[in-house]
Design a protein around this nucleic acid. Structure first.
Lengths: 132, 132
DNA sequence: CCTTGACTTGGAGTTAACTCCAGGTGATAC
DNA sequence: GTATCACCTGGAGTTAACTCCAAGTCAAGG
């Protein structure tokens, strides 16, 4: 699969895909004889993983470290697990913050809703007075 | 309340508080005769609101627009509600993305956990062989 | 065969959101 | 009263994460 197809498939620009590879966020992708990237199924799964992690806000730097550990083999399993656990905790904390904000937004929207309804009612009564 | 105290209370730097005021993210704060900011209770509630919205990732630019509408009075209630509803939807979508990532992280952590346990077991068996 | 278009690289530019700095003023501690 | 400290402003600098650009190479269509 060529870079433009991968870009299309995941909604990530070709520039970003090359950037990710350059900084070590995804493994080096196989090339055709003329040097053009040819993404394998494994490459696609790696892109998908990084896309998922990035979409949740995990920092690029942390993910680079993680990928480097994966490349170093089985000896780093413990270290990888620790990274994921830490990022999992941070993510859960962010989500809790966001839930708090969501609740406040819902409350404010409801208050505004009531304010709008009240105003409409007043206007209707004014119109009723005009007709009377 | 002086800026350093507000900074302490909310965990927002004085620089950021001044920056927020400068760009219109929070209302102008009352000053003492010599020009020093003196945050009122209302100011504190505004800071708290902005802190909450920012912590959930609502863009500064959107919040500036929202605050400007609040300052324009009751005529803008409908427009304000629309902004909040849109941001609420975006926030919920981000949270869903993050939940997906959280699930994947939990799965991976579990896989790593099992890998670590398996390795420990192998080592124990080796030790048992040595002793035997 | 030649043009068009997708690909390549290294490096520069952009964006959002702060964060820091220099230079200056007023208030407080000793 | 003087030294230190928090505060002020306008503007410059930083950081993360892309995003764009110039200049060059290769492959396929007409």
């Amino acid at each position: 699969m060529k870079i433009a197809e991968v870009s299309e498939k995941f909604g990530i620009s070709s520039d970003t895909l090359r950037y990710y590879e350059r900084i070590g966020l995804i493994w080096p992708v196989n090339r055709t004889a003329s040097g053009i990237r040819d993404y394998s199924d494994l490459d696609l799964r790696r892109v998908d993983f990084i896309k998922c992690m990035r979409s949740a806000g995990l920092p690029v730097e942390v993910l680079i470290d993680y990928v480097a550990l994966v490349q170093q083999g089985d000896e780093t399993i413990q270290a990888r697990k620790e990274i994921l656990k830490e990022q999992r905790a941070l993510l859960a904390a962010r989500m809790q913050e966001m839930q708090k904000t969501l609740d406040i937004l819902d409350h404010k929207i409801e208050v505004y809703e009531n304010a709008v309804l009240k105003k409409e009612k007043e206007i209707m009564q004014e119109q009723a007075l005009e007709i009377a």
